[in-house]
Computed example of a mutant assay.
Amino acid sequence: MSHRKGVLKRRLEYIGMFPFVLAGMIYGRLFPLKKKTSTFLFFPSADIGGAIKVNADIAACMKDQQPLIIFSKKPKNNGHLEMFQGFDVLDLHEQIDNKLYHFVNFFYRGVLAAWINSAPNATIFGGESLFFYKMLAHVNRNVRRIELCHLDTWLPYSIGFIDLITLRIFSTVKLMKDVEEQYKKTGVNPSYAKRLRFAENMIPIPPYRPVNNETLEVIFIGRGAPQKRVPLIAAIAEKLHQINAPIHFSFVGDVDNVIDPAQYPYCTFYGNVRDEAKMLELYHKSDVLILTSAYEGLPLVVMQMMAHGRIVMSTAVNAIPDYVRHMENGLLIHATSEPAIVEEGATLLQWLVEHPEVKETFGKRGREIAIEKFSGEVFCREFRKFLYTDNDF
């Protein structure tokens, strides 16, 4: 979709919903927000996932501003809900995430718009939240509107709103470059490219602890989502098990919805791990993080493994090669067909078994990159600037 078509579609939709939005605005003025704030953070939910963890980190950086967090999507597990304790949270998913009575969604857009428009120096921030985009047409132009994007899957949709967004922040340089190319190809006014920003995600950097495993410990950490292609990892594990390679695989996350753990008795399945201490110990005891994703931003698990001084082996997709450099601090699978990915992944892990000396060398180099790029101090400073002061466009 081009920007022009997106704007036209947005305006036609606005005409149909206007009576409900107006009713919500009237209600919002009659019943103003009890606890005043000028910072409104729009997040989908508190489900387990890297993007949600980033949202929680951003909220923590703004805690002194007493932000209101708005959840809008029906959660699958709310596994990260504890990260939002101590914040004012408005969970609207039961009211607005239902197509059968979508007019209620329109009404709440009006309510929130009334609250936002009445707040002095208001800022709204969207962390991959569809509802954030829906709000943009209803807030005043003097409201700062900041978007964060991790994946290119949002780009065909979000281009219809770029005239309403103050700053667009991307978690990888490649994604920002992709948007610049999208603007050129679709004839977007070049001035909008000046609103694009890049920011690294953050993680705490743990003390370095070496590990000496007799068996190569390979771990997958993530969701059982289709783009993660967990069955490919299971196939790699099976292939190596058949030749008795000294390699053990572990899985963390809800992978039982895409593979049957009973078929892989030689692997360890932890399920969703919510205990932070246990999760840190799993990072420490592992040698290799394995990812076979079809697409990725920069997953937090990659950053975590690098910070622990461990090796990341991943398909060479999206931003991964910007941080994982083949045969320097990690291993990249360049194959694209699924059978070839399985074959190349198994071959690389066998090579690693035959060259154990590189585990520490690769790991320490990855840790150096993590220390340089992922500190919390830099992260908070950048996002506070984006949300409140950056007008350089």
Rank of each mutant, 00 (worst) to 15 (best):
G6S: 03
K9V: 10
L12N: 02
I15M: 13
F20A: 08
V21N: 02
M25S: 06
L30Y: 05
L41N: 01
G50R: 06
A60I: 04
M62W: 02
M62A: 03
S72L: 02
K76S: 15
K76N: 15
F84S: 03
Q85R: 11
H93A: 04
I96L: 08
K99V: 13
F103S: 00
V104W: 07
V104E: 05
F106V: 01
F106K: 01
F107R: 01
G110H: 02
A113K: 01
A119L: 07
N121W: 00
N121S: 09
A122R: 03
F125P: 00
L136H: 07
V139T: 02
N140S: 14
N140D: 13
N142W: 09
V143K: 01
R144Q: 08
E147L: 09
L148N: 05
H150S: 05
D152M: 08
F161W: 14
T166R: 12
T172Q: 08
K174D: 14
K174T: 15
M176F: 11
T186Q: 07
V188M: 01
P190R: 00
S191A: 10
P206F: 09
N213H: 11
E214Y: 13
V218K: 11
I219H: 09
K228T: 04
V230T: 07
L232Q: 07
E238P: 00
K239L: 12
H241G: 05
Q242R: 13
N244V: 04
I247E: 02
G253Y: 08
V258E: 09
P261V: 10
Q263D: 13
T268V: 12
G271Y: 05
G271N: 04
N272S: 14
V273H: 08
T292D: 09
P299D: 06
V302C: 03
N318R: 06
E328W: 13
N329W: 06
G330R: 09
L332H: 00
P339C: 10
I341S: 03
T347S: 14
L349N: 13
L349K: 10
L349H: 13
H355V: 14
G363E: 10
G363R: 11
G366Y: 14
I371S: 04
V378E: 11
C380F: 08
E382S: 09
F386S: 06
N391V: 10
D392Y: 12
